[in-house]
C-alpha cells in the first residue's frame, strides 16, 4: 500500500491478507478513529448514508439510499429492472462515485478516495462477480483464478488449489475462458473472487446467464465459500428464491430502499 493510500485512509488497513487487524495509526489519527468507532459499530463493514446518484443526463438513479452491511453478513438486493441495483453495487465496489451522501467501506470513506485509492480498495478489500465479462479472456483458468489474489499481493497457492478443488475446476486450469461453459466461467469468477479472501464479495446477478442446474450449483458454492471465509456478501438479484437464502433482503424501488 502506498503512502498516498495511507493519506486517504484514516486507518491503515494492512495490505497483507490475514494480518489486517494490525494497527498502524498515528496519535492524531487515533482521535479520529475513536470518533468513527463511536459513529459506527465496529462490526459494520459497508454503510450507505443518504447516497444519491444521477445518470449523466441528470435523471436520478439513487435517491437518499441508506443501507448498512455488517461483517460476515449476506444481503440480497432486489428490485425491478432499472431500479438502480447495479448502480448501487458499482458504488459499493468503488467502481463509480456517488453524487451525494457518504459510502463507507471498512472504515474508509469512499468519497475521500481518488482513482488510485479506489483501485487499491478494489484490489484489497473486495471482490466482484458479474453476470458476464468477468474473466480476463487472455489468461487461462488457473491464471484467472489466482489473478486477483496476486494483484492484491496475498496469493496463497494452497488456498487456490483448495478453491479449484471445491469449485470442480482442477481439470480446467489450463483452459481459456472462451472454452468454458457459462457455469464453469462463473465458478472461475467466484474462485477468483474468493482467492483474495475479501472482506466483501459483491455479486451482480451471478446466475443471470445460467440455466437452473448450473445456477443452483454456482449459488451453493458461492454461499458456502462466503460462509467459510467469513466474508460479507452483497448480492444483486431479481430472484425471490435466491434472495430468500440470504441473511437479509433490501428492495429498491425507483432508486429508493423501502
Amino acid at each position: 500500500m502506498t503512502c498516498e493510500d495511507e493519506r486517504n485512509n484514516p486507518l491503515c488497513s494492512n495490505p497483507k491478507c490475514g494480518e489486517r487487524n494490525r494497527w498502524c495509526v498515528t496519535s492524531g489519527q487515533l482521535v479520529k478513529l475513536l470518533q468513527i468507532l463511536v459513529k459506527m459499530g465496529t462490526h459494520m463493514l459497508l454503510k450507505f448514508d443518504q447516497v444519491q446518484k444521477s445518470y449523466p443526463g441528470g435523471r436520478p438513479v439513487l435517491r437518499d439510499v441508506s443501507l448498512s452491511l455488517d461483517r460476515g453478513q449476506t444481503l440480497a438486493l432486489t428490485g425491478e429492472s432499472g431500479s438502480g441495483k447495479s448502480t448501487l453495487l458499482n458504488l459499493a465496489a468503488a467502481l463509480d462515485t456517488a453524487d451525494g451522501g457518504e459510502i463507507t467501506l471498512d472504515w474508509t470513506n469512499l468519497s475521500n478516495l481518488d482513482d488510485s485509492g479506489r483501485a487499491a480498495l478494489r484490489r484489497t478489500s473486495l471482490s466482484l462477480v458479474f453476470q458476464q465479462f468477468n474473466l480476463i479472456p487472455s489468461l487461462t483458468t488457473g491464471q484467472n483464478l489466482s489473478f486477483h489474489a496476486r494483484l492484491a499481493g496475498c496469493h496463497d497457492p494452497d488456498w487456490c488449489a483448495h478453491l479449484a478443488d471445491r469449485l470442480g475446476l482442477t481439470d480446467l486450469l489450463d483452459r481459456y475462458p472462451e472454452n468454458l461453459s457459462g457455469g464453469q466461467q462463473q465458478r472461475v469468477a467466484i474462485g477468483r473472487a474468493m482467492a483474495a479472501k475479501p472482506k466483501l464479495l459483491l455479486a451482480d446477478e451471478p446466475t443471470g446467464n445460467l440455466d437452473e442446474t448450473a445456477s443452483a450449483t454456482v449459488l451453493d458454492l458461492m454461499l458456502s465459500l462466503v460462509a467459510d471465509t467469513g466474508a460479507a456478501l452483497l448480492l444483486v438479484t431479481h430472484s425471490q428464491e435466491i434472495a430468500a437464502r440470504l441473511d437479509r433482503r433490501a428492495h429498491l424501488t425507483g432508486g429508493h430502499i423501502e
Binding site: A119, R122, F147, H148, L151, A152
Partner: peptide, 11 residues
C-alpha cells in the same frame, strides 16, 4: 479486456 482488470483494481 481492460474492464475486468480495472474492476480488479488497476487504475
Amino acid at each position: 479486456q481492460i474492464a475486468p482488470v480495472w474492476a480488479l483494481g488497476l487504475t
